[in-house]
Simulated assay, not measured.
Amino acid sequence: MPPTDASADAGPVPVHPVHPVHPVHPGRSGHPGPAEDVRDGEDTLDLRLPSELRALFAGQAPDADIGGTAAPATETLAHPPIGPFDAPDAPDTPGALDTVDLLDQVGTWGPTRTPVGLFRLQPVRIERDLPVISRWMNDPAVAAFWQLAGSLTQTEDHLRAQLAGDGRSVPCLGLLDGTPMSYWEIYRADLDPLARHYPARPHDTGIHLLIGDVADRRRGLGSALLRAVADLVLDRRPACARVVAEPDLHNTPSVAAFLNAGYRYAAEVDLPAKRAALMIRDRSLRHLM
Protein backbone atom coordinates (compact mmCIF):
# COMPACT_ATOMS: atom_id res chain seq x y z
CA MET A 1 0.00 0.00 0.00
CA PRO A 2 1.51 3.30 -0.94
CA PRO A 3 1.43 5.81 1.88
CA THR A 4 -1.68 7.93 1.99
CA ASP A 5 -0.41 11.45 2.08
CA ALA A 6 -2.79 14.13 0.97
CA SER A 7 -0.80 17.28 0.75
CA ALA A 8 -2.73 20.27 -0.30
CA ASP A 9 0.28 22.44 -0.68
CA ALA A 10 3.15 20.00 -0.72
CA GLY A 11 2.47 18.05 -3.86
CA PRO A 12 1.16 14.51 -4.27
CA VAL A 13 -1.59 13.46 -1.93
CA PRO A 14 -2.04 9.72 -1.97
CA VAL A 15 -4.19 8.28 0.75
CA HIS A 16 -4.07 4.66 1.83
CA PRO A 17 -4.85 2.57 -1.26
CA VAL A 18 -7.96 0.48 -1.36
CA HIS A 19 -8.71 -3.21 -1.39
CA PRO A 20 -6.94 -4.91 -4.29
CA VAL A 21 -5.35 -1.72 -5.51
CA HIS A 22 -3.08 -0.82 -2.62
CA PRO A 23 -3.34 -3.67 -0.19
CA VAL A 24 -3.70 -2.26 3.26
CA HIS A 25 -1.10 -3.40 5.63
CA PRO A 26 -2.16 -5.51 8.54
CA GLY A 27 -0.96 -4.17 11.83
CA ARG A 28 -1.98 -2.90 15.22
CA SER A 29 -4.92 -0.61 15.56
CA GLY A 30 -4.19 3.02 16.23
CA HIS A 31 -5.05 4.78 19.45
CA PRO A 32 -7.89 7.23 18.77
CA GLY A 33 -7.86 10.45 20.67
CA PRO A 34 -10.54 11.52 23.11
CA ALA A 35 -12.85 12.75 20.35
CA GLU A 36 -12.98 9.38 18.68
CA ASP A 37 -15.75 6.92 19.48
CA VAL A 38 -13.73 3.79 20.23
CA ARG A 39 -15.66 0.57 20.34
CA ASP A 40 -13.48 -2.02 22.03
CA GLY A 41 -13.27 -5.34 20.27
CA GLU A 42 -15.22 -4.19 17.24
CA ASP A 43 -13.52 -5.11 13.98
CA THR A 44 -14.99 -4.27 10.59
CA LEU A 45 -14.39 -7.11 8.15
CA ASP A 46 -13.49 -6.82 4.48
CA LEU A 47 -16.97 -7.64 3.22
CA ARG A 48 -18.14 -8.63 -0.27
CA LEU A 49 -21.79 -8.59 -1.17
CA PRO A 50 -23.40 -11.85 -2.33
CA SER A 51 -24.15 -12.21 -6.02
CA GLU A 52 -27.90 -12.31 -5.34
CA LEU A 53 -27.85 -8.79 -3.94
CA ARG A 54 -25.69 -7.57 -6.79
CA ALA A 55 -28.22 -8.89 -9.28
CA LEU A 56 -31.09 -7.35 -7.32
CA PHE A 57 -29.55 -3.89 -7.33
CA ALA A 58 -27.89 -3.98 -10.74
CA GLY A 59 -30.23 -1.22 -11.91
CA GLN A 60 -28.51 1.30 -9.60
CA ALA A 61 -25.37 1.55 -11.74
CA PRO A 62 -24.29 4.93 -13.13
CA ASP A 63 -25.87 6.16 -16.32
CA ALA A 64 -23.98 5.52 -19.54
CA ASP A 65 -22.02 8.23 -21.32
CA ILE A 66 -24.06 9.90 -24.06
CA GLY A 67 -21.13 11.58 -25.74
CA GLY A 68 -20.10 8.90 -28.25
CA THR A 69 -16.62 7.46 -28.69
CA ALA A 70 -13.75 8.40 -26.44
CA ALA A 71 -10.97 10.66 -27.65
CA PRO A 72 -7.69 9.02 -28.74
CA ALA A 73 -5.56 7.88 -25.81
CA THR A 74 -3.01 10.65 -26.16
CA GLU A 75 -2.29 13.25 -23.56
CA THR A 76 -2.90 16.08 -26.02
CA LEU A 77 -6.38 15.01 -27.09
CA ALA A 78 -7.52 12.87 -24.19
CA HIS A 79 -9.03 15.67 -22.11
CA PRO A 80 -11.00 18.32 -23.96
CA PRO A 81 -12.45 20.94 -21.59
CA ILE A 82 -15.47 19.53 -19.81
CA GLY A 83 -18.40 21.72 -18.91
CA PRO A 84 -20.60 21.42 -15.84
CA PHE A 85 -23.44 19.70 -17.71
CA ASP A 86 -21.57 16.90 -19.48
CA ALA A 87 -23.09 13.46 -19.02
CA PRO A 88 -21.31 11.09 -16.63
CA ASP A 89 -18.99 8.50 -18.08
CA ALA A 90 -19.97 4.91 -18.63
CA PRO A 91 -18.10 2.28 -16.61
CA ASP A 92 -14.81 1.39 -18.30
CA THR A 93 -14.81 -2.32 -17.55
CA PRO A 94 -17.14 -4.97 -19.03
CA GLY A 95 -19.60 -6.11 -16.39
CA ALA A 96 -19.30 -2.93 -14.34
CA LEU A 97 -23.01 -2.23 -14.78
CA ASP A 98 -23.74 -5.50 -13.01
CA THR A 99 -22.16 -4.44 -9.73
CA VAL A 100 -23.88 -2.81 -6.80
CA ASP A 101 -23.15 0.91 -6.58
CA LEU A 102 -21.48 1.24 -3.19
CA LEU A 103 -20.60 4.93 -3.59
CA ASP A 104 -23.84 6.53 -4.78
CA GLN A 105 -22.82 7.13 -8.39
CA VAL A 106 -19.72 9.27 -8.13
CA GLY A 107 -19.97 10.02 -11.84
CA THR A 108 -23.26 11.87 -11.31
CA TRP A 109 -22.13 14.07 -8.42
CA GLY A 110 -21.59 16.99 -10.76
CA PRO A 111 -19.42 20.09 -10.40
CA THR A 112 -18.93 22.16 -7.27
CA ARG A 113 -17.71 25.73 -6.93
CA THR A 114 -14.58 26.19 -4.82
CA PRO A 115 -12.43 29.23 -3.97
CA VAL A 116 -9.98 28.06 -6.67
CA GLY A 117 -12.49 27.35 -9.47
CA LEU A 118 -15.18 24.96 -10.65
CA PHE A 119 -14.20 21.43 -9.64
CA ARG A 120 -15.54 18.09 -10.76
CA LEU A 121 -14.70 14.41 -10.17
CA GLN A 122 -14.69 12.45 -13.42
CA PRO A 123 -14.50 8.64 -13.17
CA VAL A 124 -11.45 7.26 -14.97
CA ARG A 125 -11.67 5.73 -18.44
CA ILE A 126 -8.54 3.78 -19.28
CA GLU A 127 -8.33 4.59 -22.98
CA ARG A 128 -8.67 8.32 -22.33
CA ASP A 129 -6.93 8.87 -19.01
CA LEU A 130 -4.10 6.35 -18.74
CA PRO A 131 -1.34 8.47 -20.36
CA VAL A 132 -1.76 11.47 -18.09
CA ILE A 133 -2.19 9.42 -14.91
CA SER A 134 0.90 7.35 -15.74
CA ARG A 135 2.89 10.53 -16.32
CA TRP A 136 1.87 11.82 -12.91
CA MET A 137 2.74 8.51 -11.26
CA ASN A 138 6.26 8.77 -12.71
CA ASP A 139 6.89 12.15 -11.11
CA PRO A 140 9.48 11.38 -8.40
CA ALA A 141 7.55 13.38 -5.81
CA VAL A 142 4.44 11.30 -6.50
CA ALA A 143 6.26 7.99 -6.87
CA ALA A 144 7.77 8.37 -3.39
CA PHE A 145 4.28 7.91 -1.93
CA TRP A 146 2.31 5.94 -4.52
CA GLN A 147 5.12 3.59 -5.60
CA LEU A 148 3.62 3.24 -9.08
CA ALA A 149 6.42 4.66 -11.23
CA GLY A 150 7.11 2.55 -14.28
CA SER A 151 5.39 1.55 -17.50
CA LEU A 152 1.87 2.35 -18.65
CA THR A 153 1.02 -1.25 -17.84
CA GLN A 154 1.78 -0.78 -14.16
CA THR A 155 -0.55 2.19 -13.89
CA GLU A 156 -3.18 0.41 -15.96
CA ASP A 157 -3.09 -2.61 -13.66
CA HIS A 158 -3.60 -0.30 -10.69
CA LEU A 159 -6.63 1.33 -12.29
CA ARG A 160 -8.19 -1.88 -13.60
CA ALA A 161 -7.97 -3.50 -10.18
CA GLN A 162 -10.49 -0.90 -9.03
CA LEU A 163 -12.60 -0.75 -12.19
CA ALA A 164 -12.98 -4.53 -12.25
CA GLY A 165 -13.82 -4.71 -8.55
CA ASP A 166 -17.14 -4.64 -6.75
CA GLY A 167 -17.44 -0.85 -6.74
CA ARG A 168 -15.98 -0.10 -3.33
CA SER A 169 -13.35 2.15 -4.97
CA VAL A 170 -13.80 4.60 -7.84
CA PRO A 171 -10.69 6.14 -9.46
CA CYS A 172 -11.32 9.66 -10.75
CA LEU A 173 -9.63 12.59 -12.40
CA GLY A 174 -10.10 15.92 -10.69
CA LEU A 175 -10.99 18.61 -13.24
CA LEU A 176 -10.51 22.24 -12.25
CA ASP A 177 -12.27 24.61 -14.64
CA GLY A 178 -12.38 21.73 -17.12
CA THR A 179 -8.67 20.84 -16.94
CA PRO A 180 -7.43 17.55 -15.44
CA MET A 181 -5.05 18.42 -12.61
CA SER A 182 -5.40 15.74 -9.92
CA TYR A 183 -6.09 12.04 -9.39
CA TRP A 184 -8.50 10.78 -6.72
CA GLU A 185 -9.69 7.48 -5.35
CA ILE A 186 -13.03 7.60 -3.55
CA TYR A 187 -13.55 4.40 -1.59
CA ARG A 188 -15.63 2.74 1.09
CA ALA A 189 -13.33 2.81 4.08
CA ASP A 190 -15.70 0.65 6.09
CA LEU A 191 -15.38 -2.14 3.49
CA ASP A 192 -11.64 -1.72 3.07
CA PRO A 193 -8.87 -3.45 5.04
CA LEU A 194 -8.18 -0.02 6.56
CA ALA A 195 -11.25 -0.66 8.73
CA ARG A 196 -9.22 -3.22 10.69
CA HIS A 197 -7.02 -0.42 11.99
CA TYR A 198 -9.60 2.02 13.37
CA PRO A 199 -13.18 1.87 14.75
CA ALA A 200 -14.91 2.15 11.38
CA ARG A 201 -18.56 3.06 11.06
CA PRO A 202 -20.95 2.05 8.28
CA HIS A 203 -20.49 4.08 5.10
CA ASP A 204 -17.25 5.76 6.19
CA THR A 205 -15.79 7.08 2.93
CA GLY A 206 -12.06 7.39 2.29
CA ILE A 207 -10.14 9.53 -0.17
CA HIS A 208 -6.73 9.29 -1.85
CA LEU A 209 -5.39 12.29 -3.74
CA LEU A 210 -2.40 13.40 -5.75
CA ILE A 211 -1.88 16.77 -7.39
CA GLY A 212 -0.58 16.09 -10.88
CA ASP A 213 1.63 18.96 -11.99
CA VAL A 214 4.36 20.69 -10.02
CA ALA A 215 2.89 24.10 -10.92
CA ASP A 216 -0.32 23.21 -9.05
CA ARG A 217 1.46 22.30 -5.82
CA ARG A 218 2.27 24.49 -2.85
CA ARG A 219 -0.30 27.14 -3.67
CA GLY A 220 -3.24 26.10 -1.54
CA LEU A 221 -5.12 24.00 -4.09
CA GLY A 222 -4.91 20.82 -2.06
CA SER A 223 -6.62 22.15 1.06
CA ALA A 224 -9.38 23.77 -1.00
CA LEU A 225 -10.02 20.57 -2.95
CA LEU A 226 -9.82 18.27 0.07
CA ARG A 227 -12.58 20.33 1.67
CA ALA A 228 -14.63 20.45 -1.54
CA VAL A 229 -14.47 16.70 -2.11
CA ALA A 230 -15.34 15.93 1.51
CA ASP A 231 -18.37 18.19 1.17
CA LEU A 232 -19.32 16.48 -2.08
CA VAL A 233 -19.17 13.09 -0.36
CA LEU A 234 -21.31 14.28 2.54
CA ASP A 235 -23.81 15.99 0.25
CA ARG A 236 -24.15 13.10 -2.22
CA ARG A 237 -23.91 10.23 0.27
CA PRO A 238 -26.55 10.86 2.94
CA ALA A 239 -25.69 7.63 4.78
CA CYS A 240 -22.07 8.70 5.20
CA ALA A 241 -21.29 10.57 8.42
CA ARG A 242 -17.48 10.77 8.05
CA VAL A 243 -14.79 11.19 5.43
CA VAL A 244 -11.46 9.66 6.43
CA ALA A 245 -7.82 9.72 5.30
CA GLU A 246 -4.49 8.60 6.75
CA PRO A 247 -1.46 10.67 5.68
CA ASP A 248 1.97 9.73 6.95
CA LEU A 249 2.41 11.11 10.44
CA HIS A 250 5.79 12.59 9.46
CA ASN A 251 4.43 14.38 6.41
CA THR A 252 3.73 17.64 8.20
CA PRO A 253 2.53 19.57 5.12
CA SER A 254 0.07 16.80 4.33
CA VAL A 255 -1.38 16.69 7.84
CA ALA A 256 -1.59 20.49 7.83
CA ALA A 257 -3.49 20.40 4.54
CA PHE A 258 -6.13 18.13 6.04
CA LEU A 259 -6.42 20.29 9.14
CA ASN A 260 -6.86 23.37 6.95
CA ALA A 261 -9.57 21.51 5.05
CA GLY A 262 -11.67 20.92 8.16
CA TYR A 263 -10.49 17.43 9.13
CA ARG A 264 -9.66 16.65 12.73
CA TYR A 265 -6.67 14.67 13.94
CA ALA A 266 -8.35 11.60 15.43
CA ALA A 267 -5.60 9.07 16.10
CA GLU A 268 -2.22 7.65 15.23
CA VAL A 269 -2.47 4.34 13.38
CA ASP A 270 0.27 1.77 12.86
CA LEU A 271 0.30 0.48 9.30
CA PRO A 272 3.01 -1.83 7.98
CA ALA A 273 4.68 0.84 5.83
CA LYS A 274 4.21 3.84 8.09
CA ARG A 275 2.70 5.36 11.17
CA ALA A 276 -0.29 7.33 9.94
CA ALA A 277 -2.35 10.22 11.18
CA LEU A 278 -6.02 9.28 11.00
CA MET A 279 -7.82 12.38 9.76
CA ILE A 280 -11.61 12.61 9.90
CA ARG A 281 -14.05 15.18 8.57
CA ASP A 282 -17.35 14.79 10.41
CA ARG A 283 -20.74 15.66 8.99
CA SER A 284 -21.76 17.03 12.39
CA LEU A 285 -18.77 19.38 12.52
CA ARG A 286 -18.51 20.39 8.86
CA HIS A 287 -19.98 23.84 9.40
CA LEU A 288 -17.73 24.52 12.39
CA MET A 289 -14.37 23.49 10.93
Rank of each mutant, 00 (worst) to 15 (best):
D282F: 14
M289I: 02
P34W: 08
P272T: 15
D270H: 07
G167Y: 07
D101V: 12
G67F: 05
A189K: 00
C240Y: 12
H22M: 13
A273S: 15
A149E: 10
I133P: 07
G220I: 05
T155E: 06
V100P: 12
D101E: 07
G68K: 01
G220K: 10
R135C: 06
P3G: 08
R201S: 05
A10E: 04
R160D: 11
R286F: 04
R242V: 03
R196L: 09
S7T: 11
A215D: 14
S223V: 01
D231G: 07
D166G: 10
D270F: 15
R188A: 14
Q162H: 06
T112M: 12
R281P: 08
P247T: 01
A78H: 02
L77W: 07
W109H: 07
F145S: 13
P111M: 11
D5S: 13
D92I: 02
A70I: 00
E36G: 10
A161R: 08
L278V: 00
C240I: 13
L77M: 13
A55L: 07
P171T: 02
Q105V: 14
G95H: 15
G33I: 09
L77R: 08
T4Q: 04
D101S: 14
L152Q: 07
W184G: 05
G206C: 06
R160P: 04
L130P: 11
G83Q: 15
G83W: 04
L226P: 00
A241D: 15
R48H: 03
D213Y: 09
P123M: 02
T93V: 13
L176M: 14
G212Q: 01
V100S: 11
T112Y: 05
L221K: 15
P17V: 02
N260S: 09
L278S: 01
S29K: 02
A256W: 00
R283C: 14
G107N: 03
I186Q: 06
Y187N: 03
V269Y: 03
V13E: 00
I211P: 04
R128I: 01
M289C: 10
L77P: 05
L221E: 12
R188G: 12
V214G: 10
H22W: 09
D213M: 15
A277S: 13
A215I: 14
R135N: 11
R54L: 08
G150N: 04
A71Y: 03
G117T: 14
P202A: 01
L210P: 10
A70G: 07
A273C: 08
P72E: 03
L103D: 05
V18G: 13
P14V: 06
R120S: 10
W146N: 09
P202C: 00
Q122Y: 03
Q60I: 01
R283F: 11
P2H: 12
L47F: 12
M289N: 04
D9G: 03
L163Q: 14
